[in-house]
Design a protein around this nucleic acid. Structure first.
Lengths: 235, 235
DNA sequence: CTGTAGATCACTAGTCATAGGTATGTTGAC
DNA sequence: GTCAACATACCTATGACTAGTGATCTACAG
């Protein structure tokens, strides 16, 4: 019988951590070397062990779990990092991938189990949740598109990203942009209505359209998009 | 009543074609304008209609379905092409994406239904099967690795500003920071509660304290502060 | 031991936001 | 003149958020 593959878990939240450990230890093929709940503890665990797989959360009390991925370079390169998290926005996903995540699985994703994910890694695959896949596809289409036109953009110091996403922002009408700016500045719909001397209902209608065009569901998400695309100043 | 979203199906194999049409016509939100079984017929259908969505197979008796995707440029750009196929090798996948597929779904994929895929498209998403996502992720990591000077430094060099404001952020407890991160990522209090396995009331209490400490009144303002002070990444 | 800070939970009342609709008037393009 | 896009306005559920208040528990410093 071949040795089991080793795993280190880094997850602050108790029940999820226990779930991960349970899955690993109850498997024939895996063994759990350590289960940490802080970034610092994770780093110590990686000083002690060089597991085959590192399951890590992003949002930890003492920092960003992704920092540990770069820590795996060199001596510890044998360890494949798999992100297990709730964040499914493209920012987190892309950050994880750009620092070298070998997989990205959403907590509580019924369509991909933790054990499946671990097995995929061993086969050289890249376990990934469907929801995440979408984000990657969109981004990928980006880089494809942007690398086509080598015509330089002197202008925007705003990060060149997804034409798909740019299109979304650009499809906003002037009035909608004005409203988005105020939304992003923390004004309520009622305040915006007063400020612009239009009906409250009109504001809600604009806001609805903005959400549809940006594919978001809340003002916070809309504000994030606005900042990301330079619609509003963020110094 | 708003019009239903229109779909054209291009699939040579009878049972799959019927299945697709059945799903579409039985849905409240979609209507099927045409169901074709050859490339030529598909082209004719696109001359006649400009559907919201084109579901297409790759392997057709008279050619490669992907040809139709480039046919959608210009006048017909409104139509989003979604590939529905059995091919899961990276060559087919990459080809489809590079010609502009908005989605890539495997036939008989239990983890993503056709109707789900259609809805994702309307929301500006990109439906994709997990198995396909893996291929893309691997490719993506390649291109990242080869052209990796441009990848920005994620290290935060947040502008040093008003010290009093820094104090505000710094007065947040670790737990409060975690909550703030999730608030800034657009999660609702309820979602945060579920994720962190604490009561909804506890979340609202944390949020209240955060507002007090940051001297704000809404989540959007709190998110702005969080971004400004580098508590969360803004890629 | 006592006080303080942090994290947890609870309830209520009032306000706001979001998601469905529907509808009207203006403008500019074809 | 018709059509499409835009801005405007209204209505109604339902759910989410905010503010105020009070309370328990743990851990740790003094």
């Amino acid at each position: 019988m071949q040795n089991k593959f080793s795993v280190v878990v880094l997850e602050d939240e108790l029940t999820t951590r226990e779930r991960l450990v349970r899955v690993i230890t109850s498997s024939e093929q895996f063994t759990c070397l350590a289960a940490c709940e802080t970034l610092a503890a994770g780093r110590r665990a990686l000083d002690e062990f060089t597991p085959d797989i590192l399951l890590l959360d992003i949002d930890l009390p003492d920092g960003n779990g992704l920092e540990l991925i770069s820590y795996l370079e060199g001596e510890r390169a044998k360890t494949k990092p798999v992100v297990v998290t709730v964040f499914e926005d493209s920012r987190h996903v892309m950050e994880a991938i750009s620092v070298g995540a070998a997989g990205y699985v959403l907590k509580d994703d019924p369509s991909i189990s933790i054990e499946q994910a671990l097995l995929m890694i061993l086969e050289g695959g890249a376990p990934i949740s469907p929801a995440i896949a979408r984000q990657i596809l969109l981004k990928f289409k980006d880089t494809q598109a942007t690398s086509d036109d080598a015509t330089d953009e002197l202008s925007s110091e705003v990060a060149e990203d997804a034409p798909e996403e740019h299109k979304k922002i650009e499809s906003l009408t002037p009035r909608e942009r004005e409203i988005l700016v105020m939304v992003s500045d923390g004004f309520t719909d009622k305040e915006i209505a007063r400020e612009k001397n239009i009906s409250y209902y009109t504001v809600t209608t604009h806001v609805k359209r903005i959400y549809q065009k940006l594919s978001v569901k809340t003002r916070v998400e809309a504000a994030r998009q606005a900042i990301k695309h330079g619609i509003i100043a963020q110094t």
